[in-house]
Amino acid sequence: MPADEILNVSHVSKSFGELDVLKDMSLAVSRGEVVSVIGPSGSGKSTLLRVVNQLERAESGSINVCGQVLCQNDEKGHAVYADKAVLKSIRLAIGLVFQNFNLFPHYSILKNITEAPIQVLKKNREEAEGTARELLRKLGLAEKESAYPCQLSGGQQQRAAIARALAMNPQMIFFDEPTSALDPELTGEVLKVIRELAEEHMTMVVVTHEMAFASELSDRIIFMDQGVIIEEGTPAAVFASENERTRQFLQHYAKTGL
């Protein structure tokens, strides 16, 4: 594993019953890199993130995060997972931002952000709240710290969810279609935040349908279909691809304007 490599997914397969969602998937991400994953619905993009985040379990293959082994094949080719402590340490190394925000509705925005630093990282309240307020200011939510999620717009909720992930000081952040649940006029404010994180060289893997955004922001674009990577390269290379499936997909997006 190269020195600056932060994530290595190697020959990972995952199926739900009869359906093979990930087929022999391999992917490496370097520190500071921004990788966008595009592809039609059901292509396995989200599952890829969820497997690395341990919300799903791989059936075979190996995953390495920040030099720690999440899982690797035994001699029969079945993925064997690390012990609980390692799993937790890996989980904490990666922040995940969900499509539906998944903020805790019964907590204020501030408490949403301080909950895990206090409960999991055992930070004291003052320190955690200081960090949280700093993040809220940075993400333009300074006035919203005592509001409840239901009182915020979708864009504000998603920014709060990003703040919650950042408060754990992760090594990298995964975004699972961060703007798909938002009204079109609210996607801009969320994309702006992600763009700022990219400028700060935060390592990010973004599953997205925002093609213009992916093209502008990413160091690398991965096009997935039916559980495999069809194409991988710089935005310029992928958008100028000669590959039939890639072209069809991109044309479809160009046409519908999504």
């Binding site: 985040n53 937790k88 989980r91 990666i94 922040g95 998944n102 805790f104 895990a116 999991v120 919650r164």
Partner: peptide
Amino acid sequence: AGQQEAAYVLGL
């Protein structure tokens, strides 16, 4: 389910 998933990835 997203509530539990969010808590899980935050390490609770």
